[in-house]
Simulated assay, not measured.
Amino acid sequence: MAPLVQSSQPWVEKYRPKQVKDVAQQDEVVRVLTNTLETSNCPHMLFYGPPGTGKTTTALAICRQLFGPELYKDRVLELNASDERGISVVRTKIKNFAAFAVASKPRQGSYPCPPFKVIILDEADSMTEDAQNALRRTMETYSKVTRFFFICNYISRIIEPLASRCAKFRFKPLSEDIMITRVQHICQEEGLALEPEALSTLSSISQGDLRRAITYLQSAARLFGSSITSKDLISVSGEVVNSFFAACRSGNFDLANKEVNNVIAEGYPVSQMFSQLFEIVVGADDVSDEQKARICRKLGEADKRLVDGSDEYLQLLDVASSTIRAICNMQEEFS
């Protein structure tokens, strides 16, 4: 069957819940935040937990329900702290936005329109400690007119003075039942036929990350059309890693760099790529044990740096260059 004509809009955005009550399997978080919306008494907030469990969705939904479409652009600043995580960003962009007072607006329909702004800092655990310390002073100075929503995977990497000023919300990994229900809804809306075994496979390869599951599903629909099998999904999940490894084995750094740029541009999780690359390398029959050891050691080092907040692009590029050296240099030694 010919592939469906797909919209250019990512399904992750198309099917992102618009209201807090629609966020899946975070009952305690939803209950508390629903009360917050009713009173409009909104504290600084810290959302933490595994990727793809609804943290960013919840933060965006709160802002939409507080301000509505007319005030949203003026009242909400969204920043990805992994890209803009230095102290200069805190001193300029964040401080300038936080400093402006906003006029009090009467309630408009179902939107409370409270007299403050919101700054959403996604991947806040990637911010440097100096930037977090500077941010603490900004929070104290402008607390009457600005609220901060921090989103992170690792709460331990948020300094205590920041964390203690926030209401904390832990997001749990999504169960297989919840993921299957959401995926089935998308399949129905998009006219896809997914085999029962494929549903289980999708849940397994996405490891509780609903965002990843939806991305795999859309990629499979683009490549294989409306009827999708387990084999199709496995192919999609490993395609990027296989292309990356093939580019490294070619010995062409420019080709490997192109694959790295593609991974970053498409938003694939680099930490998961390292896990898949490890399995490919260990299972490769034409790679020597010494080559495998060198590559796996670099994967471990790069993964540790990611946990410590390093840039994904640089770490993936470092793995690429090390893999090229491990494979090509040793082949030259024995040729």
Score class of each variant (00 low, 15 high):
residue 1 M to S: 14
residue 8 S to H: 01
residue 10 P to R: 00
residue 10 P to I: 00
residue 11 W to V: 01
residue 18 K to C: 00
residue 19 Q to P: 00
residue 19 Q to H: 08
residue 19 Q to K: 12
residue 19 Q to S: 05
residue 21 K to L: 07
residue 21 K to C: 05
residue 23 V to N: 03
residue 24 A to G: 08
residue 25 Q to G: 09
residue 26 Q to A: 11
residue 26 Q to W: 12
residue 28 E to D: 12
residue 30 V to F: 01
residue 30 V to L: 02
residue 31 R to C: 02
residue 31 R to W: 05
residue 34 T to D: 10
residue 35 N to W: 10
residue 37 L to P: 07
residue 40 S to K: 06
residue 42 C to R: 02
residue 45 M to P: 03
residue 52 G to A: 08
residue 52 G to S: 06
residue 58 T to Q: 05
residue 60 L to W: 03
residue 63 C to E: 07
residue 75 R to K: 12
residue 75 R to A: 07
residue 76 V to H: 02
residue 79 L to H: 03
residue 84 E to V: 03
residue 89 V to I: 15
residue 90 V to H: 07
residue 91 R to D: 13
residue 94 I to D: 08
residue 96 N to L: 06
residue 100 F to A: 14
residue 107 R to L: 12
residue 109 G to P: 06
residue 111 Y to L: 06
residue 113 C to Q: 14
residue 117 K to D: 07
residue 119 I to K: 03
residue 120 I to D: 07
residue 122 D to W: 02
residue 122 D to H: 02
residue 123 E to K: 01
residue 126 S to R: 06
residue 129 E to W: 09
residue 134 A to G: 15
residue 138 T to P: 09
residue 138 T to C: 14
residue 139 M to S: 08
residue 139 M to C: 11
residue 140 E to P: 05
residue 146 T to A: 13
residue 151 I to V: 14
residue 155 I to K: 14
residue 156 S to K: 11
residue 159 I to H: 07
residue 159 I to F: 08
residue 161 P to C: 11
residue 162 L to P: 09
residue 163 A to D: 10
residue 164 S to A: 09
residue 164 S to G: 10
residue 169 F to R: 05
residue 172 K to P: 01
residue 178 I to A: 15
residue 178 I to W: 00
residue 179 M to R: 07
residue 181 T to N: 14
residue 185 H to I: 00
residue 193 A to N: 12
residue 198 A to E: 04
residue 200 S to V: 14
residue 200 S to P: 00
residue 201 T to C: 15
residue 208 G to L: 10
residue 214 I to V: 15
residue 218 Q to I: 01
residue 218 Q to V: 00
residue 220 A to Q: 01
residue 220 A to Y: 00
residue 222 R to T: 01
residue 224 F to L: 01
residue 228 I to D: 10
residue 229 T to S: 15
residue 230 S to K: 10
residue 235 S to A: 13
residue 238 G to I: 03
residue 246 A to W: 03
residue 252 N to H: 03
residue 261 N to V: 06
residue 261 N to F: 05
residue 263 V to W: 02
residue 264 I to V: 14
residue 265 A to L: 13
residue 268 Y to P: 03
residue 271 S to V: 04
residue 274 F to H: 03
residue 276 Q to W: 07
residue 280 I to W: 04
residue 285 D to C: 03
residue 289 D to R: 04
residue 289 D to I: 06
residue 291 Q to T: 14
residue 293 A to M: 11
residue 296 C to M: 13
residue 298 K to G: 04
residue 300 G to A: 15
residue 300 G to E: 05
residue 304 K to L: 15
residue 304 K to G: 05
residue 307 V to M: 12
residue 308 D to F: 14
residue 311 D to Y: 03
residue 311 D to H: 03
residue 312 E to Q: 13
residue 314 L to T: 12
residue 317 L to M: 13
residue 320 A to I: 03
residue 322 S to L: 01
residue 324 I to R: 10
residue 324 I to P: 11
residue 330 M to V: 08
residue 331 Q to I: 05
residue 332 E to N: 12
residue 334 F to Y: 07
